[in-house]
Amino acid sequence: MDIATQLFEGQLICLGPIDHEKDAEIESKWTHDPDYLRMLSPKPARPLSPAMVKKKYEAVEKEMDESHNTFYFTIRMRGDDRLVGFIKIYWVEWTHGNGFVELGIGDPNDRGHGYGSEALRLILRYSFAELNLFRLSAMVPEYNPAALHLFTKAGFVEEVRRRQALQRDGRYWDAIHLGLLREEWEEKVKGE
């Protein structure tokens, strides 16, 4: 890896900006799948219209521009630039060098192809080798084993288990806080 290494390009996918013209229609469709929303967020699931998604994009870019502690990317296919998901680093505390990571692959047909792992690989390198963060956190609900697997494979370890912090489908679930230190990431990529 050197200065010419493309930080935002993987084998299958790449990280790109929001396309305000086209993306909102696609993401609006994703939000009509309650599973997608519930895997991502503890907030009550509700579908968003394309106009609501557009507003969200504007808020995201305003936040990125003004707060300097959010880094939001769309995940797109290499070649045709088709939108498949998003990934973001947020709640960065520069004083301590920590932050959170979250990602989603919107269409169920796009899951299980390695797009998420590749996006995560790119964002980890970006976080540790470009933002120079010291550690990253990820919050995952107990009922999302795919996400747990994804983060664990990337080197994250479980740090906190917030017992019964989530209630869905008539039962309680733990909220799991995972963490990855820069030194652990460095060790891991050395071996790859």
Partner: peptide, 12 residues
């Protein structure tokens, strides 16, 4: 309160 874990080295 019960201990539920530690976010490692979060603060400097």
């Amino acid at each position: 309160f019960v201990h539920e874990g530690r976010v490692r080295q979060e603060l400097l």
